[in-house]
Design a protein around this nucleic acid. Sequence first.
DNA 1: TATGCTTGGTTCCAATATGGAACTATATTA
DNA 2: TAATATAGTTCCATATTGGAACCAAGCATA
Lengths: 175, 175
Amino acid sequence: MRWQDTNTQTCSITRSLSIFGDRWTLLVIRQIFMRIRRFSEIQASLGISKHRLSDRLTRLVEEDVLYKDAYDQAGNRFEYKLTEKGLDLYPIIVALAGWGDKWLADDDGVPIEYIHKDCGENANAKVCCNHCKEEITANNTYVVPGPGILKKLARNEFSDSDIQLYSKSLDADSR
Amino acid sequence: MRWQDTNTQTCSITRSLSIFGDRWTLLVIRQIFMRIRRFSEIQASLGISKHRLSDRLTRLVEEDVLYKDAYDQAGNRFEYKLTEKGLDLYPIIVALAGWGDKWLADDDGVPIEYIHKDCGENANAKVCCNHCKEEITANNTYVVPGPGILKKLARNEFSDSDIQLYSKSLDADSR
DNA sequence: TATGCTTGGTTCCAATATGGAACTATATTA
DNA sequence: TAATATAGTTCCATATTGGAACCAAGCATA
């Protein structure tokens, strides 16, 4: 399967990765969260080549993850800012940072800390059940097919490998 | 900057992405969470080419994200299973799925739902503050340099672009 | 014991994506 | 007006990926 075909898949993870599942895009988004928002700033701070960055920014604007906000009088130079859709990527960024902090930090410790303004404490983010607020892990969760699968199954629009995937479930055996 | 240099960076996000920030690795991990754990199963279900999958699995075992568990008598054929480090990627998977569910689902609705066993409800997972359990967003969080930065700064092991990055903060202006 | 089948790869080559340098066009600054 | 900064684009060499063919070990069958 070629990569450009992946965004036609049903899986939400596959669809998400079709937008930012490459080597640079999430780092570009991270910079923009960090207020590094102009082309040259992003390019210099990441060391990404210019035409690659140009591609990525254009694509993120097309996907409505970023929008261009002119900062000169002529209106030809832009800061790239996060749309509502883009701001919603924050949990993914925090989850990535948290995993790296836990498993990849060197002896010096965690490079940056996230402070939750409302309580003033180190956020040390966890993924929690929206209903009971307890932490979500692979071992206390299982999956069931949702309407996006069931309706396609009813219309026979689902492949064998999709059925194989979604007939499986996550539970304590995931280890 | 070439990609193989990225895992020397201080940033936890960059280090994380140096392991699974390519087009396929997170999908491979997702399959393993979904109990699709043998080479041929993963290969057929994702449509990834064999040598690419071989590379990725080898690398994930090297990185201690997966381990090989023999399932034949001769001990030559393996299921790839998640280590503790790998299981800890679950929040990232859930965050990706949640974003895709919200922003990329088609009219049929969400493809799969995550059920939290402890309360029996649809988890609809949120990234929350570990301290007060409230949801984390770009607007209610800011960042401060942690020891991993401060110690390197004290030893002069930090580049200008790193300083630029970490001197910025996240807050309500992130939009 | 020979035969083919399945699994889990590896090897080769063509196609695609990326990095780096040079170039360009438009604004802003001196 | 000239110099500089910004935000790209173009060209080419290199790196990564996909696809097909090949291979070797183990198992199932005759």
